[in-house]
Amino acid sequence: MNNDKTSFLSKKNIYLQFPDLELLRRARQGEESAFHELVDRHANALFKLALSLTGTVGAAEDVLQDTFLGAFKHLSTFEGRSSVKTWLIRILVKQAAKYHRYRRLRRTEPIDDISETYPSAFSPSDSELAIDIKTMIKTLSPEHREVILLRELQGFSYEEMAEVLGIPRGTVESRLFRARKELRKRFKDDLL
């Protein structure tokens, strides 16, 4: 038992040294622990994105779980043209879009305020404007919300966003332009 724990820890230390691509290659070859390391590495960033896209912790967890399970099931589909993180984000964005479609079909209630469902979602020290902006982001269409969050939270380039969302670069630019225009319109007085 103790030996098992030691071997797990030493294996974990080895995995820490590997880049994402190597971990993915090993996971493909059946080294399950390699994929667990990928989960540990990216879960936090992906959770933040999922939470921003869906608005509730429960939905974010579902989306995140579907993302990792989907990635694990389709390890062979990764072609290596993008980074592993970009690949995971692409799956996550698709899962979030699926979640929004499902909500629309089920005509469920509008998503709860993040700060209500998850008190620490946004720091109380944020200015009133910051609290407003999170509300504004939530009122954007899912397509506009995606581009804004990928750009501002993930720091994605237009090319990366185009790849993640599976749309042309020009569409990314126009969506981002409209999303920002929308936000500026709503904050017209505050931003002056």
């Binding site: 879960a43 933040k48 990792f68 910051a130 902006i133 939270l153």
Partner: peptide, 27 residues
């Protein structure tokens, strides 16, 4: 300003229990 406001939003980290559940679901 808008960009600064969005990036300054503090979004919580993933709870440890959730990470554990992720690993369990994979297993």
């Amino acid at each position: 300003r808008i960009s600064g406001l969005i990036t300054s939003l503090s979004i919580p980290n993933i709870p440890d229990a959730m990470v554990k559940r992720l690993h369990q679901s994979l297993d």
